[in-house]
């Protein structure tokens, strides 16, 4: 049997197995909903056993099919198994092309295309940022409005649903922005490649100037840490304004608010510093080992200090007290 036929057999079997798995998952979920719809105290051992009679056969068939898939792999092995591969970031490709790009030798029309694409991406980023902030603002206000804070499950879930929808809206905005950005990057890459093929190319790749190197080394990181801290403070200020507007008093929970605000600031600064800031842009072997060592020592010291403080202020006892009791909410009771 040829490899092509074997691959086709595996593909067909895989599709059938996928359909079976999804069908079994849906049947399990539907069975659970049907049991729930029985009214008060719907989940009993007898009722679960009754519904299990209907779903057990598809489940057993599914298990058999999974075992069959592995047997098939042994009996008809695929010689070359390609791993699932994704795409390289187009921004890296663009950066490489720009190092060889000579703008002075480029045709005006192409140059204009390249500039328009960059402007387009800037506008897309700005609009998506504004929309995301709006979604965040709406969901935060909704969370703190007293009318939406209920004491029963349904109201809580509706509140959550609204918050999740707001967040999903923000995610959709980001997704749309990334799609537009991808299209724009592709157009710019094509234009650049065309320009380079038409002679707008430097003989050797461009070296970074002193100023560019300094900015890449320190300026970007510091600017981003500053921006992160400012946005963390802004978020906390916004939350506190909303709290005041909705009639909550901070004074009753001052310690908690101060601590959580400080933690939010530190966390956001850490996020920016570690991911977007100083460390992320610099490849590891170019870091000064002393700086890395200092940061590690600081964080280790902070961690051990916090643990010790937690032991003495009762935090460790609180963790134990919760851990030795069944969290009924975590397992769906209550």
């Amino acid at each position: 049997m040829t490899q092509e036929k074997i691959k086709r057999i595996h593909l067909i079997y895989g599709i059938v197995l996928s359909v079976l798995l999804v069908a079994v998952a849906i049947s399990l979920i539907v069975a659970c909903f049907l049991i729930y719809n029985h009214g008060d105290s719907p989940f009993t051992r007898e009722r679960i056993a009754e519904y299990w009679q209907y779903v057990c056969i598809p489940v057993y068939v599914c298990i058999a099919a999974i075992i069959g898939a592995f047997v098939l792999r042994i009996a008809l092995p695929i010689k070359e198994e390609k791993t699932v591969k994704g795409e390289i970031d187009p921004k890296l490709t663009l950066a490489r092309l720009y190092r060889r790009f000579d703008a002075s030798a480029c045709r005006p029309a192409l140059l204009e295309t390249i500039r328009k694409q960059r402007l387009f991406r800037t506008v897309v980023k700005a609009v998506s940022a504004v929309l995301c902030v709006a979604c965040f603002a709406v969901s935060t206000v909704f969370l703190f409005l007293p009318n939406h804070i209920g004491t029963d499950m349904t109201t809580d879930l509706l509140t959550l649903l609204f918050v999740v929808c707001s967040v999903m809206d923000a995610m959709l905005v980001c997704f749309a922005a990334s799609m537009l950005e991808k299209m724009s990057l592709r157009a710019e890459t094509q234009a650049l490649k065309l320009a380079l093929s038409q002679g707008a190319s430097l003989p050797t790749p461009r070296e970074e100037s002193e100023q560019e190197r300094a900015w890449a080394k320190w300026g970007k990181g510091v600017a981003k840490v500053f921006a992160a801290t400012a946005s963390a403070l802004g978020a906390i200020l916004f939350i506190m304004i909303v709290m005041f507007a909705c009639g909550y008093t901070v004074s009753d929970h001052l310690v908690g608010v101060i601590f959580l605000s400080a933690y939010a600031v530190v966390l956001m600064a850490l996020v920016y510093a570690l991911y977007f800031g100083i460390f992320a842009d610099r490849p590891e072997n170019q870091w000064k080992p002393r700086v890395l060592l200092l940061v590690r020592i600081l964080i280790l010291a902070l961690a051990l200090t916090f643990i010790l403080l937690g032991v003495f202020n009762g935090g460790m006892r609180d963790v134990l007290q919760k851990a030795i009791r069944i969290c009924s909410e975590c397992i769906g009771i209550g």
């Binding site: 608010v257 959580l260 902070l302 916090f306 937690g310 202020n313 009762g314 609180d318």
Partner: peptide, 19 residues
């Protein structure tokens, strides 16, 4: 720890996660 942060500052769990 976060939901009872006004009673006990949750140093312990933050320290564990940092570690």
């Amino acid at each position: 720890a976060v939901s009872s942060g006004d009673k006990t500052i949750p140093y312990y769990i933050f320290g564990i996660i940092l570690l």
